[in-house]
Nucleic acid binder design. Sequence first.
DNA 1: TCAATCACTGTGTTCGCACACAAAGATACT
DNA 2: AGTATCTTTGTGTGCGAACACAGTGATTGA
Lengths: 354, 354
Amino acid sequence: MNNIQGKIKIKDIAEKAGVSAGTVDRVLHNRGNVSEETKKRVKSIIAEINYTPNLYASALASKKTFVFRAVIPAYSSGEYWEMIEQGIRKGAQELIDFKVSIHVHYYDQYNQESFCRTLEEAISYKPDGMLLAPSVKPLTLQYTGQLEKKGIPYVFIDSRVEEAHPLAYFGQDSLRSGYLGAKLLLSQKKECCDVAVFSFFHPGQVAANQISLRMEGFNSYIREKEIDCRQHRATLAVNDEKKNELEMKRLFFENPKIEAAIIFSSRSYIVAEFLKNNNLNHIAMIGYDLLEKNVHYLKNNTISYLLAQRPEEQAYKGIKALSDHLIFKKQVSSVHYAPIDILTQENIDFCLGF
Amino acid sequence: MNNIQGKIKIKDIAEKAGVSAGTVDRVLHNRGNVSEETKKRVKSIIAEINYTPNLYASALASKKTFVFRAVIPAYSSGEYWEMIEQGIRKGAQELIDFKVSIHVHYYDQYNQESFCRTLEEAISYKPDGMLLAPSVKPLTLQYTGQLEKKGIPYVFIDSRVEEAHPLAYFGQDSLRSGYLGAKLLLSQKKECCDVAVFSFFHPGQVAANQISLRMEGFNSYIREKEIDCRQHRATLAVNDEKKNELEMKRLFFENPKIEAAIIFSSRSYIVAEFLKNNNLNHIAMIGYDLLEKNVHYLKNNTISYLLAQRPEEQAYKGIKALSDHLIFKKQVSSVHYAPIDILTQENIDFCLGF
DNA sequence: TCAATCACTGTGTTCGCACACAAAGATACT
DNA sequence: AGTATCTTTGTGTGCGAACACAGTGATTGA
């Protein structure tokens, strides 16, 4: 017999094949030095009884150690990227007994050179795997090319770069989240309506972002459903409160008929704050991402819906994809869209923490 | 030095305390036979260096085995409870190397006696922990009382019974999901409207269910927001298609002004099918739970929103709660509401599988 | 013919921990 | 004092797998 669980061990396989455990081990890990004949025999037995190794025993015995490196934008507390890092940390925690350690590198997302320097440094350590929040395409491709040459698997988080060959991508389908935003905002409108549409901008922005894709999705809904509405666009600046204030005043006061607003950025709270302060309660508003400040305005009914994307889960799964690939030798599928969560006052309390 | 990860092992503690590994083990597991003095010394060192055991090595060495038993309603393929079982199976899969095995018992949810028999049988095996989909209160309390007397921890899944003392509860906040249904259906209505409200019924129903709570939540929204609407209620039968057909015909044809419908049951597809077949496309409809048939009608635009509750995740977490408590000695919090997912055509594809 | 080399296979130690058992002191009892 | 008993402590083995190392024949070369 085998153990209590009835689970098959290497010894059982060895017995059935009439060889020793060492030989089975050699077959399992393609270590060579096994005759073709016994190799086939052992392999067929493994397949037949559907052997799955005890990963914990395996990790315990293994001398291999793994180092992953993550490269993400630097952030302040409460920002979107903080949640990404939380997911990374959670993954790291779960993997320590598998001898995995994870280092996080930060780059200035408004500085191209910083991106390059950070990435170069991370790569110079020759990690076993990388998690990467990509920057603009040509820049990113330059480094993913290096990684591919060195045979280091990497995972994209948050956004994706075409023509690269990541092990996997974890992020939102931004087109569709923009489309859904339009539906939630406009589906029940019967007559022509005025809508404020906000995007964000920072000079020198180098990290990829989803604003333009979301807007594209938004517009495709309007086209498809032939919605009759007037869009009033504005672009806010990341770090210029006064300018933003003026811009919003201009927009809302000059167009008093605006009855809906959508902000294609996690900084939705900036507009929400303005609406709240100016008692523009009649304006329905949709924002993005589960930041604390956004949640605040969702709870006090300024933001009607928040479309969220579970960044911790994305990052966590990204780490898991690396370990699944490198340690557990599992097949990992390459594209993983995060669910688009629709959050309201009613269900928000159940979505904090994942 | 300790190992590569820098993680502290029992041996390290033993060295620091000037005792052997065996003694440290005795302290860690309260096995007794340790003098007060050394016990204190060892404990203080453990606390000081914040020791966390390698759970995998621990499980490997341990001779203990655990048997969990789950008691849930019997179901046919495609029903709600199938997803619960999937979650249980997933949990079982992850725990096999921790020497945990899980048995599932099924009861006829329309037969009180069956519930009793099934539960008695499950308890008679003296499991280490139980996962339970409760029935009506007095009946359930009878058995949870037995479990408590025997010191067997149990977890409620799906719905909850007051006055019992489960290790944890995993399920939806039904009141709030009814409230949210009302909001999605009615928030944009300006004039008085006619709404069809469906509940379900089966003679002899004994498993607890959330229909009435959802309805209560629905009504509280209407009261709070002073919505002006006419409700047309109907109760459908679980297994009588013809009667249901007649009932729906009566309702919708006699009240042609109905422009919205909500079904407080996972069998929402029954109403959706009727609307589809009778070309009542103008009626906005809200259903509950992520059944395949419901998804079908969501995708073809008959159901506008589906409010889902991740039953697999609930069950999975229920199993994890048991193992966290029994095996990993973690503290588990007692109430866990599942997120209320708002599903639409746009985000449904990302929510299948968890 | 004997040693060297090769392909192949078996054995033994190790990982961190649990647990059975042995050993060592301390105490009490005849 | 000698022995039985109890308390306290240390030692050894095994969990399942990884990997270094030690065989074992067969083949080759001198």
